[in-house]
């Protein structure tokens, strides 16, 4: 019974995904004002030849700031978690 439900769920999800993929035409976006702006002015405004970097670090710098903060928080979490283990044994590592 469980397997039949799982199979039906997978089929429904796969079918809807395939429907989306076949209905959309790739390479012809509905709205491309933003992309055109980046491609036209990004190189001159940011002075970069790599437009991916100009988008991630300049036009969407806040996004990258959040990403860096997420990484910092993740490392801090790992450090806090394992520091407790280490401190119980010996303080030589810190």
């Amino acid at each position: 019974m469980k397997q039949i439900i799982a199979l039906i769920t997978i089929l429904v999800f796969a079918g809807s995904l395939l429907m989306i993929v076949t209905n959309f035409q790739f390479g012809v976006p509905i709205k491309s004002d933003m992309d055109d702006y980046f491609l036209k002015f990004g190189q001159v405004q940011t002075g970069t030849n790599n437009q991916c970097t100009s988008v991630t670090f300049d036009f969407r710098g806040f996004d990258t700031l959040g990403e860096s903060t997420v990484l910092f928080t993740a490392v801090m979490g790992v450090a806090l978690m394992f520091r407790r283990f280490i401190r119980g044994e010996d303080d030589a590592d810190e």
Binding site: Q43, V44, T46, T48, T53, S54, D58, G61
Partner: peptide
Amino acid sequence: TPVAFGPNPGDLNTGGFLPIMN
């Protein structure tokens, strides 16, 4: 260093503060 529009080989001394952020 200012960069012209269009394909060019590129210069390391461009990009404003993007290299600093990188």
